[in-house]
Simulated scan of single mutants.
Amino acid sequence: MTQPKTQTEQLLDAMQKRLQETFGQMLMVELFPEDPARYRLNHPRGAILLAYGKSTFGGSEAGDSMFQARNIVIRLTLVFRQLNGKDGVVSYLDEIRACLTGWFAPHCDQACRPVAEQYIGQAGGLWQYAQDFALRATQLQVMGPESGPLLTEPRFEEYP
């Protein structure tokens, strides 16, 4: 029996699907490689690589259980053969930002928004930039079964 995907895995899948729908004919869109040192760009133009960056958590929103805001950052690493021009990474930074800004991901109660972009470097003829996008979801306490006797026969009393 396969385990259902976690909230984070579902979020990454949804973002990958959104990017593939928009850029799949022009770029590779895939999860960040397990072994980045051995990654090889096989696309003639470039790739968008998605990775879970981090989460920060707010205080509990309820007194009797854990109910917290989960602020999530997803990092996109752009690996391109060209820096400038219509096929360059710089123009795709703007296009990717436009694609994701305002998009509502599953399990999130705030739209996706950009929080940072930066030049990573150039090596072996490949240009690399990072884009960070923030989303907000809710972290809930997992509730187990109650212990003790179950309420099987409720009795209601009327008040005058």
Rank of each mutant, 00 (worst) to 15 (best):
Q122D: 11
P160H: 07
E153S: 13
H43A: 04
A14Q: 04
A69G: 11
Q110Y: 03
G46K: 01
V142G: 11
A105G: 02
A116H: 09
F104I: 13
R81F: 03
V142M: 12
Q118D: 10
E21S: 13
Y52L: 11
A137D: 03
Q10L: 14
M15N: 05
G125Q: 10
I120G: 01
L151R: 05
L11Y: 07
P106Q: 09
S60I: 01
A98T: 15
T8K: 00
Q25H: 08
A123H: 10
R136L: 05
E95V: 08
L93K: 06
P114I: 14
Y52Q: 08
W103Q: 01
C99Q: 08
Q131L: 13
Q110P: 00
K5Y: 12
F23Q: 04
L78A: 09
M26H: 12
Q122A: 15
S55F: 02
R155K: 09
Q110E: 14
G124L: 10
A69L: 09
R81P: 02
N84D: 09
G24L: 07
I96K: 01
L11N: 06
T152I: 06
E21N: 14
T8G: 02
R18P: 00
T138E: 05
A98Q: 13
R136D: 01
G59W: 05
T138M: 08
T138W: 01
G46Y: 02
E146R: 11
G59T: 14
V89S: 02
D13M: 09
D87A: 09
G85I: 08
L76N: 03
F156Y: 10
A47W: 05
Q139W: 06
A134K: 10
A14N: 05
V90F: 04
T77W: 03
G88F: 00
Y159N: 14
V90M: 12
R136N: 08
N42Q: 11
V73N: 04
I48S: 07
Q68I: 03
L27P: 01
C99D: 05
I74H: 02
M66C: 06
R155Y: 01
A111S: 08
S147P: 06
S55Y: 00
M66F: 09
C99T: 15
R81K: 08
F23R: 05
C99H: 04
Q16A: 13
Q122G: 07
A14P: 04
T77L: 05
Q68W: 02
L126H: 02
Q118K: 14
G58I: 09
I72H: 01
P154L: 07
H107F: 15
P106C: 06
E153D: 14
R97G: 10
T2G: 10
I48R: 00
G144Y: 08
G125R: 10
E157N: 07
R113L: 10
R40W: 00
E9K: 10
L50E: 10
L27F: 00
L11P: 02
L150H: 08
T152W: 00
L27K: 02
S147E: 14
